[in-house]
C-alpha cells in the first residue's frame, strides 16, 4: 500500500488520527495517576497549614495526615461578617476543600487549632505577587491579635528575590507581632526593607523584591480585614470562658 504523503486528504487524516491517539493516551494516564497526585497535593496543603503552627521540617509526608488531625480541631467556612457557615467538624471536608481560587468574602476557610493546650487560629490568604499568585497561612494566638507563626509561598516569584517569602528568615519575623490594635484595626504591615519604624507591627520587606513584599503587605491587610469579625467572635467567647472559670 502506497499513499501519497503529500496529498491534502492524507495530511488531514494523519493529523486527525494522531490527535485522537494522543488525546486517549493522555486521558488514560491522567485518570490512572489522578488519585496519587491528588493525595500528594492534599498532603502538601496540610503541610503548609501546619507550617504556620509548628516546625514541619522533620515530619515525613506519611505522618502529615495524623499530625494534621492531631492539631486541627475544625476547618470552618466563615464569611466576612463573622458568621460560621459550616462547622468543619470533619477537619478536612469543609474549609479545607475550598481551593485558593474559590476563596472570597462569603467563602473563607478558618482553622481552629489546638497546639500544646494553646488555642490557635489559622487564616489562609491569597494575593498577587509580581509574577503570579502568592498565598500564605497566618496563625494567630488565642487573643486573636498576636501572630503565632506564618507560612507564605508563591507560584512564580523571582528566584533568589521574591521567592524568599517562602524561606524561614522572612516568615520568622512575623512571630509575636501584633496583627490588630485595641480598636480592631489591622495594623500588621510589611514595609520597605530597612524602614521598620514600629517593630511591634511592621516586618522588613525583601530588598530587591519590593513588588512581592508589597503584594504580601496588601494580602495580609485584605485578609486581616476579612477575618476580623470571625476572630473577634472567638476571642470574645474566650474571655467569657475565663470569666466563668
Amino acid at each position: 500500500m502506497k499513499f501519497n504523503t503529500n496529498s491534502n486528504t492524507y495530511t488531514i487524516v494523519y493529523a486527525a488520527i494522531t490527535v485522537v491517539i494522543v488525546a486517549f493516551l493522555l486521558a488514560f494516564v491522567s485518570s490512572a495517576l489522578k488519585e496519587r497526585s491528588e493525595a500528594n497535593e492534599r498532603i502538601d496543603t496540610k503541610r503548609q497549614i501546619l507550617a504556620s503552627l509548628i516546625d514541619v521540617s522533620n515530619i515525613a509526608d506519611a505522618d502529615i495526615e495524623s499530625t494534621y488531625l492531631k492539631y486541627i480541631q475544625a476547618d470552618e467556612i466563615v464569611n466576612d461578617k463573622g458568621d460560621i457557615l459550616k462547622a468543619g467538624a470533619d477537619k478536612d471536608k469543609d474549609g479545607f476543600a475550598v481551593s485558593r481560587k474559590e476563596i472570597g468574602a462569603d467563602n473563607l476557610p478558618f482553622y481552629v487549632c489546638q497546639v500544646d493546650s494553646q488555642s490557635l487560629y489559622v487564616i489562609p490568604m491569597v494575593g498577587k505577587g509580581l509574577w503570579g499568585t502568592i498565598w500564605g497561612y497566618v496563625a494567630l494566638k488565642a487573643d486573636g491579635k498576636t501572630v503565632h507563626g506564618t507560612y507564605f509561598s508563591h507560584e512564580s516569584e523571582t528566584a533568589g528575590l521574591g521567592s524568599l517569602i517562602k524561606e524561614a528568615p522572612f516568615q520568622k519575623q512575623f512571630e509575636g507581632k501584633t496583627a490588630y490594635d485595641e480598636t480592631g484595626t489591622a495594623v500588621l504591615r510589611v514595609v520597605k526593607s530597612g524602614q521598620v519604624k514600629d517593630p511591634q507591627t511592621q516586618c522588613d520587606g525583601i530588598s530587591g523584591a519590593t513588588l512581592t513584599s508589597n503584594g504580601v503587605d496588601q494580602m495580609i491587610q485584605d485578609y486581616l480585614n476579612l477575618y476580623k469579625a470571625r476572630l473577634a467572635k472567638s476571642t470574645a467567647s474566650t474571655f467569657e470562658d475565663t470569666e466563668n472559670e
Binding site: T5, N6, Y10, T11, Y14, T18
Partner: peptide, 10 residues
C-alpha cells in the same frame, strides 16, 4: 509516513 507539510506539528 509523516506528511512533509505538517512534520513539525507532528
Amino acid at each position: 509516513t509523516i506528511p512533509n507539510r505538517i512534520r513539525i506539528i507532528i
